[in-house]
Amino acid sequence: MSKRLWVEKNKDGSWDAFSDDGAHIKFGHDRGQFSPGDLMKIALAGCAALSSEFAIEHALGEGHGAKVVVDGTYDADNDSYINFNEQVMIDATDASLSEEDVDKLKKRVKAHIEKGCTVMHTYEQETPVRMDIEVRR
């Protein structure tokens, strides 16, 4: 069973997203707020970060992780993103890795992300969305 999520509008025009297990994030279109498009990119970056965590900690030690930067090309005519560019940056400056170790780490991180990132898998295919609208009276 999937986690139930919902959003509610605030009096100031911002929105709050909630989950059954207590997670919360504020979003909207004002300065200092993430837009829904931003949240799509955050989901992709977060998925890569979590998917790569084991491989990075195995190579560099507990507490290490990647900084993942995502941008995308927005198509205004179709109001959609046509691609995303993801950069996974790993700080291994204190690890004294050889070139061979660096290559192995890159391959391992890529394999973990490609295997375990549900968001990337979803974005790479056509994903239908079914919408129901209910008006309570």
Rank of each mutant, 00 (worst) to 15 (best):
M1Y: 08
K3G: 06
L5P: 03
L5M: 12
W6H: 09
W6Y: 14
V7D: 04
E8G: 11
E8V: 14
N10C: 12
N10R: 11
D12Q: 03
S14K: 03
S14W: 07
S19T: 15
S19M: 04
D20R: 06
D20C: 05
D21L: 00
D21G: 01
D21P: 00
G22Y: 08
G22D: 11
A23L: 12
H24G: 00
K26S: 15
F27R: 08
G28T: 08
D30K: 15
R31T: 14
G32E: 01
G32I: 02
Q33T: 14
F34V: 06
P36M: 06
L39F: 06
M40R: 01
M40F: 08
K41M: 15
A43C: 13
A43R: 09
L44C: 05
L44H: 02
A45D: 03
G46P: 05
A49V: 02
L50C: 02
S51D: 02
S52F: 02
S52E: 00
S52G: 13
F54E: 12
A55P: 05
A55G: 04
I56K: 01
I56Q: 00
E57Q: 11
E57V: 02
H58T: 15
H58F: 11
A59H: 07
G61E: 07
E62W: 06
G63D: 02
G65E: 06
K67G: 07
K67S: 09
K67H: 15
V68P: 05
V69F: 14
V70I: 11
V70H: 11
G72M: 10
G72A: 09
T73S: 05
T73E: 10
T73A: 03
D75N: 13
D77L: 10
D77V: 10
N78W: 04
N78G: 04
D79N: 09
D79G: 00
S80L: 15
Y81L: 13
I82D: 12
F84R: 02
N85E: 13
N85M: 04
Q87C: 02
Q87T: 07
Q87V: 11
Q87N: 07
V88T: 04
I90W: 03
D91S: 05
A95V: 02
A95S: 14
S96R: 10
S96G: 10
L97C: 08
L97F: 12
E99C: 01
D101S: 10
D103E: 15
D103A: 14
K104D: 12
K104S: 13
K104P: 08
L105C: 05
K106E: 13
K106H: 05
R108F: 01
V109T: 06
A111Y: 15
I113R: 01
E114C: 02
K115A: 11
C117N: 01
V119K: 00
V119E: 00
Y123Q: 03
Y123I: 11
Y123C: 08
Q125P: 00
Q125W: 00
Q125T: 13
T127S: 15
T127I: 01
V129I: 15
R130N: 10
R130L: 09
D132F: 13
I133D: 10
V135I: 15
R137D: 06
